[in-house]
């Protein structure tokens, strides 16, 4: 593990560079294939509406995969992630147009722990609504 951020250089409140992740219907089809999750709520508008959703929604695990990039891009080595957990609070609704949806993710250091690890709390929103709750990662710094 070779994080490019040093434990000594961060403090509680240190902000990680925020990122925005676009997601279109094409993104969801690609993610379905790569992850093996072919639930039709992620690609079939008719089915999604039949089960009471406003439209096709992104895979929760897609959002989870994007959110941790704020951490892995910050530390450089994705293997530095020791723990990562989220709660799926609201779906990311993805309309059938060329824009799709955008997931905005920010993070900051919430605690300095033992063994050069820190806890990062992440905030993920789409269309102004929080889409992940209790989104936290523990990462080992240099």
């Amino acid at each position: 593990m070779t994080a490019k951020i040093s434990y000594a250089d961060v403090e509680v409140g240190t902000e990680l560079p925020a990122q925005t992740f676009p997601v279109t219907r094409a993104t969801l089809v690609q993610y379905a294939g790569a992850s093996g999750d072919f639930n039709p709520i992620h690609w079939n508008e008719r089915f999604a509406k039949e089960v009471g959703l406003p439209d096709v929604i992104a895979h929760g695990m897609f959002t989870m995969a994007e959110a941790i990039r704020v951490v892995t891009d910050w530390v450089g080595d994705p293997g530095a992630v020791v723990e990562y957990g989220v709660r799926f609070t609201r779906p990311v609704v993805v309309p059938d147009d060329d824009k799709g949806a955008v997931i905005e993710v920010s993070g900051k250091v919430a605690a300095k722990l033992d063994d050069n690890t820190v806890r990062v709390d992440l905030t993920a929103t789409s269309a102004g609504q929080k889409v992940l709750g209790a989104s936290r990662a523990v990462v080992r710094l240099a």
């Binding site: 593990m1 070779t2 993104t27 690609q30 992850s35 897609f62 892995t72 891009d73 994705p78 293997g79």
Partner: peptide, 25 residues
């Protein structure tokens, strides 16, 4: 690689053996 591309993540540790080894993997 397929998964990393699907989430749009270009971190070389996922696709480049030398880059991964440089990180100690």
């Amino acid at each position: 690689r397929e998964f990393a591309e699907a989430v749009g993540d270009a971190n070389p540790a996922y696709t480049d053996t030398e880059a991964a080894q440089a990180l100690g993997h």
